[in-house]
Computed example of a mutant assay.
Amino acid sequence: MKDPEQRFQELMQKLRSREYRLTPQRVALIRLLASSEGHPDAAELYRRLLEQFPTTSLATVYKTLNLLKEMGEVLEIEIDGIGGEGSRFDGNDPTPHPHLICVRCHRILDGQVSLTEEILQAVQGQSGYRVISHRLDFYGICPECQAQGAN
């Protein structure tokens, strides 16, 4: 995990350089994303933002998430296909990295391995694709769900 304050400053600088409005709500949301240890969904970010800004709308959260996603500063992890609702977001480390996703409780952990340059070159050579981004997700049952008897 990147240093949350450093990540926050990095995001703020990128938004300033593109002359985006930095409302107090947007700044607070960016701080939440930069310091998130997990992979929160939009509803969780919204609930946490409401504590400080009770008049904030859910649309504000989605607009900011979409903006950061377009800038390549937030990684969206979709879990709809495994019975989860919506997406989760990684604002602390938007670089492509593997995730371990529990199909029972929908917990998401960052994998501690990365695709090597050698693997990327092999994929490009065999397919003819020019890879501009990649993602590797592993689906399974986390240790906690296994202990509870989930299959």
Score class of each variant (00 low, 15 high):
Q6V: 14
K14E: 14
R16H: 09
S17Q: 15
E19N: 14
Y20R: 12
L22V: 09
P24R: 11
Q25N: 12
L29Q: 01
I30N: 01
E37G: 14
E37Y: 11
G38D: 13
A43H: 14
E44I: 08
E44S: 13
Y46I: 00
R47P: 05
R48G: 00
L50K: 15
L50A: 10
L50S: 11
E51M: 11
Q52F: 07
T55S: 15
T55D: 13
T56W: 05
T60N: 01
T60K: 00
V61M: 07
V61P: 00
L68D: 02
E70W: 02
E73F: 07
V74I: 12
E76C: 11
E78H: 12
D80N: 14
I82R: 05
F89D: 00
G91P: 01
P94M: 01
P98N: 11
H99P: 03
H99E: 04
H106V: 02
H106N: 00
G111L: 12
G111E: 10
V113D: 08
E117R: 14
E118Y: 05
Q121K: 15
A122M: 13
G125N: 04
Q126H: 09
Q126D: 08
S127F: 01
G128R: 07
R130T: 13
S133T: 13
H134P: 01
A147I: 06
A150V: 08
N151Y: 09
